[in-house]
Design a protein around this nucleic acid. Structure first.
Lengths: 340, 340
DNA sequence: CAAAAATTTGAAATCGCTTTGAATGATCCC
DNA sequence: GGGATCATTCAAAGCGATTTCAAATTTTTG
């Protein structure tokens, strides 16, 4: 069922049918109704490739996912949010999976040269992210999920990692904790650097000295977190509180705490960062988990919205959003206890 | 940089340039080299929409993900596998996220009518899956990840869920367990039904009667599993072994076991199904987890391959693959202990 | 009631590529 | 040497939509 067929069926020209369907004003209302009705009845939908060629818009946005690091629950949730918003506009999400950094660069070049996508979403930036520079050079519009240092203005949305960790750390300090471990992301990642900043700021505000042995930089997996936490719990004096970078991390720390014969919420406190996964609920853990919380899905929805704004001409220098992070206190964090 | 520009630059016709780049035989070797070199130097890539319109191929395959149920680690890993194989062929993955079943049906209709994708991958089938029927009606090629009952032949790849659970159950029975709990997926899902079959077959082969209280049907989340397992552990006599449907489930069960003051691998055994996630390793758990194992990523790679075969004309009735599942015994499963 | 303006429709160009069918030269063979 | 063959190249016709520009019809106006 092509436009031509539909037009023939209606005894109209392609022009008129096209206009009727796309809401142009210069078409008789009766005709429009007839066209719309017939199109719906016959299940007509414009051929995507033809439409894109004619309009010059690709009707898709791209996301490049690095299989080794970026996959996992975070991406899924985020993708869900993006899709939710974009579905309404009939814009597709094109997912490209790559293994290496070089592949990722190549993927963006392909996107740009073949005009496969109208814009991309860039995730997990480093402090000085070359990918952002590349995209600007390529003239491929994008929204950055996170922040990076760049000479030129770019659109970004980020959560206030510094503020979140600073508050969480301060809260633990208020509860009397002095040996607070930070399980952070990899060095160089913007969010990790920001969290470290918040952590150090809170410590120094109370005159608590920083102990490098209490800071770990790793990926956010259950297993790595378990090992780091286990090692830290063997220190003497041992840490009395943990700041876990993600809920996965929290699960690992939790296991290490139990393994050491300690009780979470008693001898050891923990505050974890919660990106809000439907299948990993801080409220349903035992003990319930204190968290710094910000929905990654909601961020996805919003970023999709920002992309749409860029595509309709809004200047990128006007697009910066820094989202506050909630601190939700539950059972896993409590006052420091005297060591037995 | 369009084909036209490139041709002009080379002093050739579009025809010749196009043929040179696409490897047609009727072009002088010297010319081909010159064209290839210039194209590479100028970074020419055909416009995706134009190419698709001209060839009639969409150059993309579709996946519809139900946000509520299908997201999460499984999809991510699977997607990684699919992408890995498809990237080599310059075929994109188009991800559409939906909330409801109705949306999902609509998404497939859109795919078909707008010819946005050449084929789709269908996941998480039910015993009688209407989506498969729809896709066949629409004439949209697809590979089913799993199995379903259908009148017409269709391409599928599935793992041997029945065999896997049957072996795992038998093994536990061999170890003396008689009260074996099964935490299964939702009723109606093919894989869950298959697993139930394997479970019942193993029980009845030893003349062990089936206790409905020991079977749970739910989604595979940490939290739901925790609750189910907690409730089961309050039964008297309580289950001495668990079959966990996924690694997420296993984590929940694990927590419930600890919560009940029991030790996994001692008073209680567990065998979990492992889809092989890089960030959740059965070997690195404490105790290490016995599993039925089959890589969902590898399945993704293979399904992508099967799609390519279908697109190049292989009849779907020749495409059926049933993959065996490994049983990997580790510390979490052991002989039954006398109840204290 | 004729001329002007507004409304509604359509023919054809366009987007950037592939591919058909024809044309050009070079090479071969008798 | 001239007709047939082969190797290269190109002009132009699609692919299925949108959009420009012109034409036809209706309505308004003086």
């Amino acid at each position: 069922m092509r436009l031509k067929d539909l037009a023939q069926h209606l005894g109209l020209s392609q022009t008129t049918v096209s206009r009727a369907l796309n809401g142009y004003p210069e078409v008789n209302e009766a005709t429009r109704l007839r066209v719309a009705e017939t199109a719906a009845r016959l299940g007509y939908r414009p051929n995507a490739s033809a439409l894109r060629l004619a309009t010059g818009r690709a009707g898709a946005i791209g996301m490049v996912l690095r299989a080794s690091t970026e996959f996992g629950p975070h991406s899924s949730e985020f993708l869900g949010g993006v899709g939710e918003r974009l579905a309404a506009e009939e814009i597709d999400i094109l997912v490209s999976t790559v293994e290496t950094y070089q592949d990722e660069i190549a993927a963006y070049r392909r996107f740009a040269a073949s005009q496969r996508v109208d814009a991309v979403i860039l995730q997990s930036p480093k402090l000085n992210d070359q990918r952002a520079e590349l995209l600007m050079d390529l003239g491929l519009p994008f929204v950055l999920h996170g922040r990076t240092n760049a000479a030129r203005p770019l659109a970004w949305l980020d959560i206030d990692n510094t503020g979140a960790i600073e508050r969480a750390t301060s809260h633990l300090l208020d509860l009397g904790h002095r040996r607070i471990a930070l399980l952070n992301g990899m060095k160089g990642q913007t969010f990790a650097e920001h969290r470290e900043l918040g952590y150090l700021a809170a410590l120094s505000a109370r005159g608590v000295s920083f102990d490098p042995a209490l800071m770990g930089n790793s990926t956010f997996t259950d297993e790595v977190a378990f090992r780091l936490a286990q090692a830290m719990l063997e220190l003497r004096p041992r840490p009395t509180a943990f700041l876990a970078g993600s809920m996965m991390t929290a699960l690992g720390v939790f296991r290490a705490i139990r393994q050491a014969g300690l009780t979470l919420g008693q001898e050891v406190s923990m505050i974890a960062h919660d990106d809000v996964f439907p299948y990993l609920n801080a409220d349903n853990m035992y003990p319930t988990m204190s968290t710094t919380r910000s929905s990654i899905r909601t961020a996805g929805v919003r970023i999709a919205e920002l992309i749409l704004q860029i595509l309709s001409g809004k200047p990128v220098e006007d697009i910066h959003e820094l989202w506050p992070v909630e601190l939700v206190l539950r059972q896993s964090s409590g006052p420091v206890m005297a060591e037995k």
